[in-house]
Design a protein around this nucleic acid. Structure first.
Lengths: 144, 144
DNA sequence: ATTATATCCCGGTTCTACGGTGGGGATTGT
DNA sequence: ACAATCCCCACCGTAGAACCGGGATATAAT
């Protein structure tokens, strides 16, 4: 389970897409990258991965951009992170332990991974958006 | 939180040290590396890190080797992994988020990390050793 | 004292992934 | 036609992982 900058960028982009999702209009890469401070050419790659993962669809040409394919509450964060971090993580698991000690540590690893994944599994993209809106309310109160 | 091969090697080495801990005799690097299938020169580096972290002490010269400095039940796995994966992980936290969305994702990251760390925190080196012994019993039963 | 044994410490090498950049091509609304 | 926008492929620099060598140093046995 990796929690790299990559996954963070992907979540930020999907939050941005969720916020505009009601309108039904596509959002441009450069718009997201400007709002969230993500290098646009890098974001492009991540959105391509998310598109292949079936989370977003793209519309090419003028007035084009990206759209969510599903409602934000139908996407768990584990789905997203798994897509971004790739499936070669599964390949790493395949190295079956040769010793008793190796098996014990392997079990421990699975337990830790499970703990992390359960957090991501319980949380949907909509939950993140709700958190964002709640936090923005708080910030506004301080501003007044 | 990284769960790399590095940490796995370190845990295996410390399990091996725990198993021989009662005798009070030091164990050589080459013995551990042979038992656990760890490249000896690499293991040397990891044991040096663990020594600087205060988990093991070394005895140089003939009949030398490594020894645990504390009892296995006084060492949590979080202690070990934190020592091995380094403290620059804390530096990564320092990048305070610039946007509301960034803050939300940062909170999520902390939550995931906390979940993983709590698993490691609850488990001591002795627990690992006990698991190992229990598993070996099972293997023996199948063998008979 | 000498020697064998072991760690210690310095360095180098190879490989992979991450974060990021660039160029050219395909598609689409106006 | 044209501009806007995504698509694809390739590249670069850096960092860390995993690993290897060589020599210095400390210790025990002789």
């Amino acid at each position: 389970m990796e929690l790299s900058c990559k996954s963070e960028y992907a979540l930020l982009a999907l939050i941005a897409l969720s916020l505009h999702h009601a309108k039904g209009e596509p959002i441009r890469i450069c718009q997201i990258s400007a709002e969230q401070g993500i290098p646009d050419r890098y974001l492009e790659q991540l959105l391509a991965t998310l598109r292949r993962g079936g989370f977003v669809k793209s519309q090419r040409g003028a007035k084009g951009g990206y759209l969510l394919t599903r409602e934000p509450w139908k996407i768990t964060l584990l789905d997203i992170v798994s897509c971004i971090e790739g499936f070669e993580a599964k390949a790493k698991e395949l190295k079956s332990p040769q010793t008793v000690e190796g098996a014990v540590v392997c079990d421990l690893w699975k337990e830790v991974r499970q703990a992390a994944e359960s957090v991501l599994e319980k949380c949907t993209l909509q939950d993140l958006v709700d958190n964002r809106n709640a936090r923005q309310q708080i910030d506004l109160m301080y501003y007044i």
